[in-house]
C-alpha cells in the first residue's frame, strides 16, 4: 500500500510500484479529470501538480512519488473552478472537445505560479501540451488574461 496526498486528502492505494501516477489517479483514486493521451510525456493531457510544479503523470511511476509530496489534480485546482486560469478559460470559451484542457489548465496554472507575468515567447515555449482541435490561440489569450487578473488582484 502506498500513501498519496491528492487534493489535500490522504489516500491509501493498492497498485504495483511501477504503475504510472496517471493510472493510479484515474483507476485507484477514481479522479478521471486527468487524461491519458500518449503515455510517453509528449502531449501533457495527464499534467498534475506535485508540490506546485507541473508534472506529466503518465511517465512518473508511483514509486517515484515521495512521502509528503502534495499532488493536485484538475479537480482540486480551485473550489468552484475559480482559479484565474479556469475563469479566463470560461470567459474566452477556450475548450473545443476539451479532452486536453485539464492538462492545458494545470500546465498554465503552474506556469503562472512560477512566472506571474510571462512574455508571449515564454508562454509559447513553456506550454508544450498538444491540442488537436487547435485551441492554442485562445489558450495563449487565456493565459495572458489570467496573468492580467493576477496583477490587478
Amino acid at each position: 500500500m502506498a500513501r498519496l496526498t491528492v487534493n489535500g486528502v490522504v489516500r491509501e492505494v493498492d497498485a504495483e510500484p511501477d504503475t504510472p501516477l496517471l493510472w493510479v489517479i484515474r483507476e485507484q483514486i477514481g479522479l478521471t479529470g486527468t487524461k491519458y493521451g500518449c503515455g510517453i510525456a509528449q502531449c501533457g493531457a495527464c499534467t498534475v501538480h506535485i508540490d506546485g510544479a507541473a508534472v506529466r503523470s503518465c511517465s512518473m511511476p508511483l514509486s517515484a512519488v515521495e512521502p509528503g509530496q502534495k499532488i493536485v489534480t484538475i479537480e482540486g485546482l480551485a473550489p468552484g473552478a475559480a482559479h484565474p486560469v479556469q475563469q479566463a478559460w470560461a470567459e474566452l470559451d477556450v475548450p473545443q472537445c476539451g479532452f486536453c484542457q485539464p492538462g492545458m489548465i494545470m500546465a498554465s496554472a503552474a506556469l503562472l505560479a512560477q512566472t506571474p507575468h510571462p512574455s508571449e515567447e515564454q508562454i509559447r515555449q513553456e506550454i508544450t501540451n498538444i491540442c488537436r482541435c487547435g485551441t492554442y490561440n485562445r489558450v495563449l489569450a487565456g493565459i495572458k488574461l489570467a496573468a492580467e487578473r493576477g496583477q490587478s488582484g
Partner: peptide
C-alpha cells in the same frame, strides 16, 4: 454566444468515453 458545454471541461467533470464508470 458562449458554448453550452464549456464549464464541465474546466474542472475535470466532463465525462468522456475513457472516463466512464
Amino acid at each position: 454566444l458562449k458554448r453550452l458545454d464549456t464549464l464541465p471541461k474546466l474542472d475535470g467533470s466532463q465525462v468522456y468515453g475513457l472516463d466512464l464508470k
